[in-house]
Every structure is written in structure tokens, then in C-alpha cells.
């Protein structure tokens, strides 16, 4: 079977983010870029399925600038078979991402699409759901466990929901989005990195796909979280309750 894994290039979560002077985007010089951590988990899951089910092909897909090659190459070094990069310099919103994926599903015909539950840069958490909707496929989001049926016709997916776990049975083809506890991704091994150099990485200009990617939203303003200030000591329980009520307004 074929698994399509979607991969986004995002700033390293450890990077200290600075805003541009006009305040609607971040300064990207000197930022270290990584695979979106949830996408890395999705890649790992695909590779584990491949290790169990012989003949599985894992195809990576990224949409973005040429620099996203590095993240795709990292995924190939982890063990994916080939990669597709849809090239564009413009900002691609979740709906546009979903449409591009829909388009490529038409040619690639995967049985399973694995994605991160969200990208850690804009935290939209909707591309996976939109892909499922556009394709009319079942979806299982926030997966913490994926068990593929022996006949490869369906899967059991455990989801992390508020206060517990929910297990769904879904027929394939389907869209599954990965949550943090699904697995612990492997490191790209050094021999794997050398092998990845020879794997196929196909580039497709976004314009060639004929997909409507016009933005529907505009970022008005970004703000960094307020600086943490030191705590304050209160004299008594009574005063504590008072402060929590009057100032913090939490009780």
C-alpha cells in the first residue's frame, strides 16, 4: 500500500522568535528550521507500518519554498521512499494546503494519508480535517495509536479526547493526524542520510497544479507573550483569596 505523509518546514521550537517591525510576521534570518514535530511523528508511524507490511511505499509531500528540500531529505534519511515538493513562495493557508493535497491524491492514489495534528508555527489544526472533507474520506485526528487491519482495508485508531481515549474503526482510504504520544520518531541515521541523497525528490511548481490557493485571511498583528514578571508574597490565606478574586479574577 501507499502512504502519503505531509511535512511542513517550521521554525525550531527552541528558536527565540522575533517579530518584524510591522508586527505581522516573524524575522526568519538566523532561524533554525525543522520538520514540524507532529509531522515527524507521522513519518515515523508510516515507517513503522512499512516495516510491518512489506511492499508499503512511503511518499512525503511538502508545500513551500525550495528550502523545504532539507526537511524532505531528512524524512527520506529516516527511511521514506520518495518525496514531492510543491514549490511556492507565497503563504499557503490550511484550505489551500488541503486542496493541493487533494489534487496530488488524484495522481498518487495513496490508501492512507498521515499528517501532524497541527503545525507548530500557526497552530491552525485544520488541514487534516479539510483534506478528509474534500476527499470525502473518513478521518481520525489526534491519533495516539494506529493499528492497521491485516487485510489493509481498515484501521483502528485510538484518539486522545478530553478526559480519555476513544477508539475508532475506519475503512481505508482515510486521513489520520498524529498526536504527540503516537510514537517517538527515530533519528535520521548517518548511512540513511547518505542513502537519501539518491532518493527521488520531485519538484512541482504550485501554479502547474491549477489549484485555487488565494488567501482567505490576513494576519493583522502578532504579539509575543507578555514577559513573565516575578511573583508576589501575600500575608495570609484571606489575602490570597482576596487577590485571586479581585485582581486575578479567577475565583
Amino acid at each position: 500500500m501507499k502512504i502519503l505523509v505531509c511535512v511542513k518546514r517550521v521554525p525550531d521550537p527552541e528558536t527565540v522568535i522575533k517579530l518584524t517591525p510591522e508586527g505581522a510576521s516573524i524575522v526568519t534570518d538566523n532561524v533554525k528550521w525543522v520538520i514540524n514535530p507532529f509531522d515527524e511523528i507521522a513519518i515515523e508511524e508510516a515507517l513503522r507500518i512499512k516495516e510491518k507490511a512489506a511492499g508499503t511505499e512511503v511518499v512525503l509531500l511538502s508545500i513551500g519554498q525550495k528550502t523545504a528540500q532539507e526537511q524532505l531529505r531528512t524524512g527520506l534519511a529516516m527511511g521514506a521512499d520518495r518525496a514531492i515538493l510543491v514549490l511556492t513562495d507565497q503563504v499557503v493557508e490550511p484550505l489551500a494546503v488541503a486542496r493541493v493535497i487533494e489534487k496530488l491524491v488524484g495522481t498518487e492514489k495513496p490508501e492512507l494519508i498521515l499528517m501532524g495534528k497541527q503545525a507548530i508555527d500557526d497552530d491552525s489544526n485544520c488541514a487534516g480535517q479539510m483534506v478528509a472533507e474534500l476527499l470525502g474520506w473518513p478521518q481520525a485526528t489526534f491519533a495516539s495509536k494506529v493499528v492497521l487491519g491485516g487485510d489493509q482495508k481498515g484501521a483502528q485508531v485510538t484518539r486522545e479526547v478530553d478526559g480519555g481515549l476513544e477508539t475508532l474503526a475506519i475503512p481505508l482510504p482515510a486521513v489520520v493526524t498524529a498526536d504527540l504520544r503516537l510514537n517517538e520518531p527515530r533519528y535520521a541515521s548517518l548511512p540513511g542520510i547518505m542513502k537519501a541523497r539518491k532518493k527521488e525528490l520531485k519538484e512541482i511548481p504550485l501554479a502547474e497544479l491549477g489549484v485555487d490557493v488565494a488567501p482567505r485571511t490576513r494576519i493583522v498583528k502578532l504579539e509575543t507573550p507578555p514577559k513573565r514578571t516575578g511573583g508576589r508574597k501575600v500575608g495570609s490565606v484571606q489575602e490570597l483569596v482576596q487577590v485571586l478574586h479581585d485582581e486575578a479574577k479567577v475565583i
Partner: peptide, 14 residues
């Protein structure tokens, strides 16, 4: 090069 950067990143997170 790209694979040099990937090597460094991989060993580093290891």
C-alpha cells in the same frame, strides 16, 4: 551542504 546540516541536526538531537 544539505546532508552536512542534516547530519549535524540528527547527531545533535540524539
Amino acid at each position: 551542504s544539505e546532508d552536512e546540516r542534516i547530519t549535524q541536526a540528527s547527531v545533535r538531537s540524539f
